[in-house]
Design a protein around this nucleic acid. Structure first.
Length: 229
DNA sequence: GCCCAGGTGGGTA
DNA sequence: TACCCACATGGG
């Protein structure tokens, strides 16, 4: 039995805040997002879709290496993505999986940023939260999780990111219904855990940290889960 | 060999 | 709306 299922079956109430506190005291600050620039956060957010982060690291390393040979600067930026043929881009990001789809997605975002904000992230992040979120969702390849990761980790907006780990954790704890959709779940969390950028930043990262080791789909290692004590 | 990983878009009933 | 499927590499 999962420790968090134990809460549910014994009708022990835990709150979103208590889970956050436990995770924070167990794992400490995570310092997300792991990237050297806002633009790199966005690229990482797209590349990490349904893929292990270690794969993404290889892909981003390829992009940096390529740009270093081209311009002397080992960084991921808009000019690099714009200058690359989609096929070449796909080849460089191959380790991240779904590379043809993701190359198309990166190109789509590049066109969006250039067309809508003259290539300026500063201008893009000058938008109001709701406005930018809606615009991002309209970009090919950017769904709710990717949009919210971009908003929170690159833009510093107070928005809570929901992912597979988040659903699994809250569901096992009995805090949510299995069939809640992304928006419902996000609203529920934000209603019960008031928006603060720093906490939302850490919370999502902490849930991923927990999920990677103790709250996996299979083989959860629940006997060592920090939430069990 | 099998399952899974920080999803999204498109098609069908 | 509610499912199904394609997309694809790398690690345990």
């Amino acid at each position: 039995m999962y420790p968090c299922s134990y809460y549910r079956e014994k009708s022990i109430k835990v709150t979103f805040e208590e889970i956050y506190s436990k995770l924070y005291s167990e794992f400490g600050p995570q310092g997300w997002w792991p990237a050297e620039s806002s633009f790199e956060v966005i690229v990482g957010a797209i590349l990490t879709q349904s893929v292990n982060w270690t794969n993404v690291e290889k892909a981003i390393a390829n992009l940096k290496e390529y740009n270093k040979g081209l311009t002397g600067k080992a960084e991921v930026n808009l000019e690099l993505l714009e200058g690359l043929e989609e096929e070449k881009l796909a080849w460089l990001i191959r380790p991240s999986g779904y590379y043809n789809m993701k190359a198309r997605k990166l190109k789509a975002f590049s066109h969006f940023l250039r067309g809508e904000y003259e290539g300026s992230l500063r201008k893009m992040f000058g938008e109001r939260l709701e406005v930018l979120r809606a615009k991002l969702l309209a970009v090919y390849g950017i769904g709710p999780e990717t949009a919210d990761s971009i908003l929170l980790y690159a833009g510093g907006y107070p928005i809570f990111v929901i992912d597979a780990y988040t659903k699994r954790l809250y569901s096992r704890c009995g805090l949510i219904e299995e069939d809640m959709d992304y928006h419902q779940l996000q609203q529920l969390v934000m209603k019960n855990f008031p928006p603060q950028v720093e906490c939302y930043n850490e919370y999502h990262a902490l849930i991923v940290a927990l999920g990677k080791y103790y709250c996996r789909k299979t083989a959860p290692r629940c006997e060592k889960c920090p939430l069990s004590s």
